[in-house]
Design a protein around this nucleic acid. Structure first.
Length: 482
RNA sequence: GCGCCCUUCGUCUAUCGGUUAGGACUCAAGAUUUUCAAUCUUGCAAGAGGGGUUCGACUCCCCUAGGGCGCGCCA
């Protein structure tokens, strides 16, 4: 065993767990839609596990469903992974391109007597299931062609190839997350390996591809747990090594229901558009189902050093945008002003002129601790690019009362005489407030309203400095004239 | 229907038989403050229910309830 101290029972002598063998993980999405948050977490765990063990992380596109697979979805998945920083090794494997090899395995099994032809029509099988349902019996292929002699074959009907699975005994999946999961072989039926048109089914393709790609650890969604027992039949029939499994509990929406567009099953690119940082997404996703004591903020470097399969939880987790916001806020505050400016710049879509980046960087210390996402950051920075006369929101309007305006009017001549840097401006305003028997806030708030059009902003002296003397005085003048 | 999985504060989780059941998010209060944040402090809040096993169960076993997944010539 490579891992020691595993708390879940696992005594299987897998040779894939040999210390000498390079660990190979894979992420195998089917391109029938975008990469959603559950898939992203699966990819993350696979990536982390391979990086933790200096192994290999591979990407396989399961595009064998020709009806539903689209190039756009493939594109979205690739872009999503790239944005998340989950770089894969080697070339991408496209499953459909390997159909011949899959068929070859099915035929090999047939030749070995581990599989057989079945001529039952879809209609016939549907009728069979209907009867099983009506009789309250388990729904599964009844093996009607399992033992028929070759002479019984129907000449004008192309057959499917079905696995000849064991009918007694049990199949045990030693799962790193779920523990030992046992399936009576009587509940496993002779599923189809090769369709009547000669194309392989998913069940066959996965097993063959995982073997050919040298996958040692299969980390995937819980929905595949029962499939693992079926896939095991193919693995055994071929005499291939059994990979180590880790089936992750599925993720739920904020309301505990299945993930759907309403609550969290957004494409991963939409999280980007919402203004989340990839490193924050990684941290957040990691903590959904995996833990390291009480640690919450876990950098990617730490995650790579610490990640294991043993600490993956067994119960489903819900997405929680409040927590994501909080984690994202942490990473924003820790990010460099330059990096944040670069990440935020695109949100202005070219507005703001060539010196916007410099202004953003200058204002960033005050901006970044007031925002939880890049979108909020850009919003808070609107005053940097606003054109005079500024739009003034309701709360700011209230601050610009007659008294407020009068204060601004008296401030202008003072500012004209003041060196334009933070400490001097600070001194001048405090001095002014003191001489007029005003609290600092009574002066700062109207100033803020006139300068930013809002009632909240970064520190007012920083705003003054970032805006510059001419622009600042202009904005103040706009509010004192009318 | 059959099989499998899951169940600790509202949410994410710690706990590997003995703890005042801990942390984080959210929320509330306070401190700080030129606003809002950030930061710090404090508070609210949990072992689905029922049986066992044990000197002692959140932890081990069984049952029930609830939730999820699978049962395609889909993946």
């Amino acid at each position: 065993m490579l891992r020691t101290g595993a708390k879940r029972p696992n005594s299987s002598p897998n040779r894939t767990q040999s210390r000498l063998m390079t660990i190979v993980t894979r992420f195998a999405p089917s391109p029938t839609g975008f990469l959603h948050i559950g898939g992203a977490r699966t990819a993350l765990f696979n990536w982390l596990y391979s990086r933790r063990h200096s192994g290999v992380f591979r990407l396989r596109i399961e595009d064998t469903d020709r009806q539903r697979s689209t190039p756009a979805a493939i594109e979205a998945i690739i872009e999503g992974l790239q944005w998340l920083g989950l770089n894969w090794d080697d070339e991408i494997v496209y499953q459909f391109a390997r159909a011949e090899r899959h068929a070859e395995v099915a035929k090999h099994l047939l030749a070995q007597g581990r599989a057989y032809h079945c001529y039952a029509s879809p209609e016939e099988l549907e009728e069979m299931r209907e009867q099983q349902r009506a009789a309250g019996k388990p729904i599964r292929y009844d093996g009607r062609w399992r033992d028929k002699p070759a002479t019984d074959r129907r000449p004008n009907v192309p057959p499917v190839i079905r696995i000849k699975a064991p009918q007694t005994g049990e199949t045990i999946i030693h799962d790193k997350v779920q523990g030992d999961v046992r399936f009576g072989n009587d509940v496993l039926d002779d599923f189809i390996l090769l369709r009547s048109d000669g194309t392989p089914t998913y069940m066959l393709s996965v097993v063959v591809d995982d073997f050919d790609m040298g996958v040692t650890h299969i980390i995937r969604g819980d929905d595949h747990l029962t499939n693992a027992a079926r896939q095991r039949q193919i693995i055994d029939a071929m005499g291939w090594p059994i990979p180590t499994y880790a089936h992750l509990p599925l993720m739920h929406g904020e309301d505990g229901q299945k993930l759907s567009k309403r609550h969290g099953a957004l494409g991963i690119h939409e999280y980007k558009d919402l203004g989340y940082l990839p490193e924050a997404m990684r941290n957040y996703l990691l903590r959904l189902g995996w833990s390291h004591g009480d640690d919450e903020i876990i950098t990617t470097e730490q995650a790579i050093a610490w990640f294991n399969l043993e600490n993956i939880g067994r119960s489903p987790a819900r997405v929680d945008f409040k927590k994501l916001d909080n984690v994202n806020g942490h990473y924003m505050r820790q990010a460099s002003d330059e990096a944040l400016a670069d990440a935020t710049l695109p949100l202005f879509k070219g507005n703001g002129g060539p010196d916007l980046r410099a202004k953003l960087i200058a204002a960033m210390p005050g901006l970044k601790e007031r925002a939880k996402t890049l979108v909020e950051l850009a919003d808070g920075a609107q005053f940097l690019i606003a054109k005079r006369p500024l739009p003034i929101d309701d709360k700011a309007q209230k601050l610009l009362s007659p008294e407020g305006r009068s204060i601004l009017a008296r401030l202008i001549p003072i500012f004209e005489q003041t060196p334009w840097e933070s400490a001097a401006l600070d001194g001048a305003v405090r001095n002014f407030a003191e001489h007029n028997g005003l609290k600092l806030g009574a002066v700062a708030q109207p100033l803020r309203a006139a300068l930013t059009g809002r009632s909240t902003s970064p520190g007012i002296f920083d705003v003054l400095v970032v805006l510059g003397k001419a622009e600042s005085l202009g904005r103040l003048a706009d509010q004192t004239k009318s």
